[in-house]
Design a protein around this nucleic acid. Structure first.
Length: 384
DNA sequence: AAGCTGACCAACCGCGATCGT
DNA sequence: AACGATCGCGGTTGGTCAGCT
C-alpha cells in the first residue's frame, strides 16, 4: 500500500559507490545522523535514493562493522541459528557482533550452504539427506523430536530478536546524538559507540517476562526462564508435540501442535536431568539424569503442555562434536578422509559405505550442538 | 595469452511491516 | 480507521577477480 517509487526516479545514480560518495554520506551522518533516509540524499548532496544510502551505511560504512573472515565460532553460530531460524538473517545477525545480515547471508550462500551439502546435510532443513534411511532404522522419532525442539527454540529466539529490535529503536536516538559528535572516515574504526545494540546472544532479557501479547511459544519461554533468572541452565520447561507426521510449519504458535493426536510425548527437565514420557503411557517417564525434582510445567490451556529440552543436555554430546564436524568437512577434507575411523563426527560423505549409523550420530551431534548453543546463553548480556 | 568458469560480495529489487497523519 | 510514507528484510542480480583449461 502506498509504496513510494524510491529508486526509479530519473537522474538517481545506481551501482557501486565511489569513495567521494561514501565520504559525503559519512560526513552527513556524522554531522546530522541519518534521520529520514528518503530526505538524506538531497541534504547530503548525493544523487542516490535514500534506500541506497541506507543500505550503503548499514552494510558498509557503519563504524561498528567487522569485516573479514568469519571465525569458526561465527560459522558455528550461523549454522546453528540458521537451523533454528531459517533465513532470518537479521535475527541471526543480531547474535553476531559486528556482522551485517547481508554479509551473513552472502557467507551462508557461498560457503556454509555448500559445506553442509557436502556433509550430507540438507542446508534448508538441516536434516541428513538420507533421512529416510534413518527412519527405517528407527531414528525418525529422534530426528522429528529435534526438529520440534528447534521450532520451539525458534520461537524463543524470535522473541529475543523482537526485544533486540525494540532496544535498537530506543538506542537510535542516542546514536544520532553521538554520531553528531564524532567524526569518521571509512577506514576508521570507532569503538566509542554502537549504533545497534550489543548482541543479546541467546539469553532472554527480563523485560520479556512482562511482555505484551505475544505468541504462546514465547510465553512458554518466559515461563520457563523466569524462574531461573534468565539462566537457561537452571531453567526448566516443558513442551509437547506430535511425533507423527511432518513437522508443523515453522510458525510460532503452539496451537495445532496437538493435531496428530497419537504419539505425543513430553519433556520435563532442566539441564541436569529430565524426563520424557510418551503419550498413551502416562506413567512411563523415562528419566534422563538423576534428579527427581518436581519441575514447573507450562500449561497453555490447550492439551499441549510442554516441552523443553535441556534434556538434550543428556541426549548428548558436546560442542566439540560439532566443531569437529564442521572443521573436518571444510573444503574437501571430509570427503577425502575416508580412513578416519575414530570419533563420532566429521564424516560428511553421505555416500560412504558403512557410515549409515555414523550419519545418524553426526546428525544427532549436529542438533545437539545447536541446542547446546541455545542453552549456553551468557547471563550478562546487556539489557534495555 | 585468451577464454571460460566459479567464487565472492556489493548492491538492487520487491514486498511486508511499521509509523505518522 | 484509513491511507500514504518510510523502513527493514530476504531474495536475487551483476560486476570483479582468480584459477583453470
Amino acid at each position: 500500500m502506498g509504496r513510494s517509487p524510491c529508486c526509479d526516479k530519473l537522474g538517481l545514480k545506481k551501482g557501486p559507490w565511489t569513495p567521494e560518495e561514501d565520504q559525503k554520506l559519512l560526513a552527513y551522518i556524522d554531522d546530522h545522523g541519518h534521520g529520514n533516509w528518503r530526505a538524506l540524499p538531497a541534504k547530503a548532496g548525493l544523487q542516490r535514493c535514500g534506500k541506497s544510502c541506507r543500505l550503503r551505511w548499514t552494510n558498509y560504512l557503519r563504524p561498528d562493522i567487522k569485516r573479514g573472515k568469519f571465525s569458526l565460532q561465527e560459522e558455528q553460530t550461523i549454522i546453528q541459528l540458521h537451523a533454528l531460524l531459517g533465513n532470518r538473517w537479521s535475527i541471526i545477525a543480531s547474535h553476531l557482533p559486528k556482522r551485517t545480515d547481508n554479509e551473513i547471508k552472502n557467507y551462508w550462500n557461498t560457503h556454509l550452504k555448500k559445506r553442509l551439502a557436502k556433509m550430507g546435510i540438507d542446508p534448508v532443513t538441516h536434516k541428513p539427506e538420507n533421512n529416510a534411511l534413518a527412519a527405517s532404522n528407527g531414528h525418525s522419532k529422534n530426528a522429528t523430536n529435534l526438529s520440534h525442539i528447534a521450532q520451539w527454540e525458534s520461537a524463543r529466539l524470535e522473541a529475543e530478536a523482537r526485544l533486540a529490535h525494540q532496544s535498537k529503536l530506543r538506542s537510535n536516538s542516542l546514536q544520532t546524538v553521538e554520531l553528531s559528535r564524532s567524526s569518521s572516515s571509512p577506514a576508521k574504526t570507532r569503538h566509542t559507540h554502537q549504533p545497534s545494540p550489543p548482541p543479546n546472544y541467546l539469553d532472554v532479557p527480563p523485560a520479556c517476562h512482562g511482555g505484551g501479547e505475544r505468541d504462546k511459544a514465547t510465553t512458554v519461554t518466559e515461563a520457563a526462564v523466569s524462574g531461573g533468572g534468565c539462566d537457561l541452565e537452571s531453567s526448566t520447561s516443558t513442551l509437547s508435540f506430535s511425533e507423527n507426521g511432518p513437522p508443523p510449519p515453522p510458525q510460532l504458535s503452539t496451537e495445532g501442535t496437538g493435531e496428530g493426536g497419537a504419539g505425543m510425548f513430553e519433556f520435563m527437565g532442566n539441564s541436569e536431568d529430565a524426563m520424557v514420557k510418551e503419550e498413551g503411557s502416562d506413567d512411563e517417564w523415562k528419566i534422563f539424569g538423576n534428579s527427581t525434582d518436581t519441575l514447573p510445567q507450562y500449561s497453555d490451556g490447550l492439551e499441549n503442555s510442554i516441552s523443553f529440552p535441556s534434556v538434550i543436555h543428556d541426549l548428548t554430546i558436546s560442542m566439540e562434536g560439532f566443531a569437529e564436524l564442521l572443521t573436518s568437512s571444510s573444503a574437501d577434507r571430509s570427503l577425502s578422509n575416508s580412513d578416519n575411523g575414530g570419533g563420532s563426527g566429521g564424516d560428511g560423505g553421505s555416500d560412504r559405505g558403512g557410515a549409515r549409523s555414523d550419519c545418524y550420530e553426526d546428525n544427532k551431534n549436529y542438533w545437539n550442538s545447536i541446542l547446546n548453543l541455545a542453552n549456553s546463553s551468557p547471563s550478562n548480556s546487556p539489557l534495555l
